[in-house]
């Protein structure tokens, strides 16, 4: 299993729960690395169901949104499901403004999200 520098990973049944190491997801190099680690979970480790728990994330930029959109495509292409949870109000507003709250399945908390896989 690969070493993850930007992610913390746990397993709940057949769902891989991802938490983020960085409180602010905005640095270009970090976002690139984050994207590669997320894509690796799907493309190389063959995981299908991912839950991204944003409880530790205080800030993200549009570059991070781009990685999430690409991840969503990869998960769907592999026949899996991607869900997001624990997004604080300011960040949820970013998803709402860009209407990505319609593209992503966003749940209030981890338990709620896990129940919907």
């Amino acid at each position: 299993m690969a070493v993850h520098r930007r992610l913390q990973l746990s397993e709940v049944g057949d769902v891989s729960v991802v938490r983020f190491v960085d409180r602010k997801i905005l640095d270009e190099a970090n976002i690139q690395e984050l994207g590669q680690e997320l894509f690796h979970l799907i493309e190389d480790e063959d995981r299908k169901n991912l839950l991204l728990n944003f409880s530790s994330v205080e800030f993200l930029s549009s570059a991070a949104l781009g990685k999430l959109i690409t991840l969503d495509k990869k998960v769907k292409a592999h026949g899996g499901k991607l869900k997001l949870s624990n997004i604080r109000p300011e960040i949820y507003e970013v998803f709402a403004i860009t209407k990505l709250n319609k593209l992503f399945d966003i749940r209030d908390d981890e338990a709620d999200a896990l129940a919907t896989f």
Binding site: S61, S62, L65, G66, K67, I69, T70, D72, K73, V94, I97, T98, K99, L100, K102, L103
Partner: peptide, 21 residues
């Protein structure tokens, strides 16, 4: 407009919309 259905899954182009909002 990144909120249009045909562009919603394009992974870039949201910065200006966020600035305006």
């Amino acid at each position: 407009d990144c909120t249009d259905a045909e562009h919603i899954d394009v992974p870039h182009g949201r910065g200006i919309m966020l600035m305006r909002n």
